[in-house]
């Protein structure tokens, strides 16, 4: 069935990565940025619900369509509570799947503006531009990803390990110190732009963006 779904979605001009168990699904979701995710509840290794819970815990808000085997209410409720945006009970008609995927992706497109703002700092998703009234600076791809994660985390600390898996990927050869080096780049750049937010280190928890305390 995966093959048929993949084929139809590709035909509708979506770019599709197909995987065959829950662990693999999680790996892909953590290392790529998708517009939408289809999860089958019944997957080997990790169930669709487990994958869903894991990615929502990591703060990934990508819309998820859950495929449930039975049209039982408890299944649907469990899925939606775990953070699914929509569900579809098997067996389903392909046109309905395509329509639901379209709605899912449309929804995510609407809520992501190009500019993210925190304090006096703006980050542009298209240009990777970090700016304040005092000027603008172009971040590198990885600096940008790091800044985006920090801005989206809304006060929750992000650990070195989380940065490592989300930016450098699971199997990366990069050594773990790279996270702190990039944090120090961002700090330097925020300071150069007279930002009123700064990256603080919380012992044992990770890094967080917070308002600059006036001395």
């Amino acid at each position: 069935m995966s093959e048929a779904v993949t084929e139809i979605l590709r035909h509708k001009n979506y770019i599709v990565d197909a995987v065959f168990d829950g662990e693999e699904a999680l790996d892909y979701i953590l290392s790529e940025k998708y517009d939408g995710i289809i999860l089958d509840v019944m997957m080997p290794k990790l169930s669709g619900i487990q994958v869903l819970e894991a990615i929502r815990r990591k703060g990934i808000g990508t819309p998820v369509l859950l495929l449930t085997a039975k049209a039982e209410i408890s299944d649907k409720v469990e899925g939606l509570n775990a953070g699914a945006d929509d569900y579809l009970a098997k067996p389903f008609a392909m046109p309905e799947l395509v329509a639901r995927v379209g709605a899912l992706v449309r929804r995510s497109g609407e809520i992501i503006p190009d500019d993210m703002t925190l304090g006096n700092v703006t980050l542009n998703r298209q240009s990777y531009e970090l700016s304040t009234k005092s000027g603008e600076i172009r971040l590198s791809k990885k600096e940008y990803l790091m800044m985006e994660i920090l801005m989206k985390s809304s006060g929750r600390p992000i650990s070195t390990e989380t940065f490592m898996t989300r930016i450098w990927g699971y199997d990366s050869e990069a050594e773990v110190n790279v996270v702190w080096v990039y944090i120090s780049y961002l700090r330097k750049k925020l300071a150069a732009l007279d930002a009123d937010i700064q990256i603080s280190a919380l012992r044992g928890r990770g890094y967080v963006l917070e308002a600059v305390k006036n001395a």
Binding site: S159, T160, E161, T162, M164, E175, V176, N177, V179, W180, I183, S184, A201, L202, R203, G204, R205, G206, Y207
Partner: peptide, 20 residues
């Protein structure tokens, strides 16, 4: 600059193997 890798949730084993 003080390296914060360990206090901010880096895997200690990885840090030891690096130059950090």
């Amino acid at each position: 600059i003080q390296n914060e890798t360990i206090i901010c949730g880096g895997r200690e084993s990885d840090v030891r193997s690096g130059y950090g």
